[in-house]
Write a protein that binds this DNA or RNA. Structure first.
Lengths: 342, 342
DNA sequence: TTTCAACACGAAAACGATTTCGTGCCAGTG
DNA sequence: CACTGGCACGAAATCGTTTTCGTGTTGAAA
């Protein structure tokens, strides 16, 4: 076992001082050409690489950014991560990932953990429980310490920071509008409960689209689901005696559960009922029928978030402290779960 | 903006020495009761937390483990990550994730990056390109520096280290055996090229099962696919005039592409052709027909890998240096893409 | 010959924490 | 009164870098 080479060892080996070695490696003109070459050759030969921890301590920068998300086994979040990773890598940053598991406590613990020197800034999407509690002291704490924070997807108005979101309202509205355009008359909404901001906003979009087309809002056509686990059951129960010809679901799973139920009960998708989901995952693409969805462009959100964060990190503090909210546009990907336009 | 509190500041504020503060906070009996209480009260009030970077430098441990995987937008890998995260969190470790993007160069760069003090050890699955090249100098380098390495899934015999794998041969064999059991006579294999170890091993299992049942091996029934992108096309071409009644695919995507083709050409799954995939993802579960698959238990692999790594990390070096290979059992999840046993 | 840059390098502080080893003071003992 | 031991605390080294500020040597100019 050969431990890592340090400046000190090089110095001893070549019989010069530590500072000389450091300067030589950083091409300081202070050092004579011959010693410089000698040191660089030695370092190269033994593959010297400076210790990141020491550098972090000295520079008070870690060159890593922390991502805190509710869960990772979820296509949307992984695309965001890969977007962040890509930009971070290009800019010489590392990415450290923590999962809150949708728990407030874990979110707080992870954040405090990372805030103690492990990362320079945060990119995060809030845990469901956090939004429910409305307790954001950990975010405020981190911001007040001067660490940049970029929220994405599950954001909250009370916190002043950069944000990357999609236009949930417009996305939902466009989806429902499409259902109306292809002739749907009774359109159901499968949503999550309102304290999850996306649920609320997408519901808004749903209502807006109905309104614009002079459809009457029927609260009986709206289902709000609390737990992922019970979704299938709830949806089946909900659809039991509803006579709908269009369904807008706020995620893939709800959409697919709905399609399954419909098909099992003698109707066809999209001939009898058109279904649109939200979030464009593998599932939507390969399901049969493939799903028409509002696509969220997770990768782009991740890239955007990373760019904003790194920009903040590399700007000398004090420069105009402005917070941006970037809205990543959604797209409507038309596939086979909706009728085509007449 | 209020910067983070340090020992030095507390010391100055309370007019004692830095060492006294440090000792007081760590409950050293050296410090008198009254000063100790005073310091602890102050620290608590101002929410002092030691700086991780400084601790890392001092202790020569970062308490973080590095994960390097080919890609993250892949259900299997995310389950592994969440398994690692879970165990790591319980043991007070952080997780830092890098993606190799299946590129050898990126894998090397990431590894060198993290090895310079950022992590205490590695959990990784090799990039396709790395296995193709057969160049593992970066792994050897890291191991020789005394950093524990745990390989999972895409592992390689030449490297001596701990490994967590599934029994690909047995998993494949069981799958094919099941096809035989339900009466399939002509069973095709959709595999990847051989330098991806899983492709090779699963092909072995396929052959083994045939052999055991005195089936004749027909090389024409084996398709090896190089690139994910061309898979759909290749599979369609391959199935064109093959008269098969069973298909074993080494992943979900191949399986689904096959099903699509079969259905589009007037045959039914599972009535005419039974299909089994590998890796139990969301897609398999919710596809129609839902897929019978060999499930890989990614979470368990992640947990296992993390446990092994942390154990190595916390063991004083020198203690018997033994490498383990843990085999996580696969399961055959029977769903609707295969006929039921007669 | 003296003086003064320029050159090439080293000593030391700093980042924030832990830890070893003093050290001053006081009480108790012979 | 002198000695010893324990208590409560501080100084300094350490981890591996970077960087500022010397400092000794040389060569050239006066």
């Amino acid at each position: 076992m050969r431990p890592k080479l340090t400046l000190k060892q090089i110095a001893k080996e070549l019989d010069v001082s530590i500072s000389t070695v450091s300067k030589a490696l950083r091409d300081s003109p202070e050092i004579g050409e011959d010693t410089r070459e000698k040191i660089k050759a030695f370092a190269k030969f033994y593959n010297y690489k400076p210790n990141n921890i020491a550098l972090s301590l000295k520079n008070r920068k870690t060159k890593t950014i922390g991502i805190i998300i509710p869960e990772i086994v979820h296509h949307f979040f992984t695309t965001v991560i890969s977007g962040v990773e890509k930009v971070a890598n290009e800019m010489g940053y590392n990415v450290i990932i923590c999962l809150s598991d949708n728990s407030f406590d874990k979110e707080v613990i992870n954040m405090e953990m990372l805030a103690n020197g492990s990362t320079d800034g945060f990119i995060m999407s809030l845990a469901k429980e956090t939004m429910q509690k409305g307790d954001y002291h950990h975010l405020i704490e981190v911001i007040s310490q001067g660490m940049p924070l970029v929220l994405f997807d599950r954001v909250v108005d009370q916190i002043l920071c950069d944000k990357v979101i999609i236009d949930d309202v417009l996305g939902a509205q466009k989806a429902v509008q499409h259902l109306i355009d292809i002739g749907c008359k009774r359109i159901a909404l499968l949503s999550t409960v309102d304290y999850v901001s996306v649920g609320k906003l997408r519901t808004q979009g749903y209502k807006l689209a109905l309104e614009e087309n002079d459809f009457e809002l029927d609260e009986d056509l709206i289902l709000k689901i609390e737990e992922m686990e019970e979704s299938e059951e709830k949806i089946e129960h909900f659809l039991k005696d509803k006579d709908v010809d269009g369904i807008f679901a706020v995620n893939e799973h709800f959409a697919i559960s709905a399609i399954k139920y419909i098909q099992e009960h003698g109707k066809r998708v999209p001939e009898d009922v058109s279904v649109i989901g939200f979030t464009d995952g593998e599932l939507s693409k390969r399901f049969i029928p493939s799903l028409t969805t509002v696509s969220q462009h997770g990768t782009r959100m991740g890239e955007e978030a990373a760019r904003i964060l790194i920009e903040k990190l590399e700007k000398t503090p004090g420069e105009d402290e402005q917070y941006r909210t970037v809205i990543v546009e959604t797209g409507l990907v038309k596939r086979n779960s909706t009728k085509s336009l007449k």
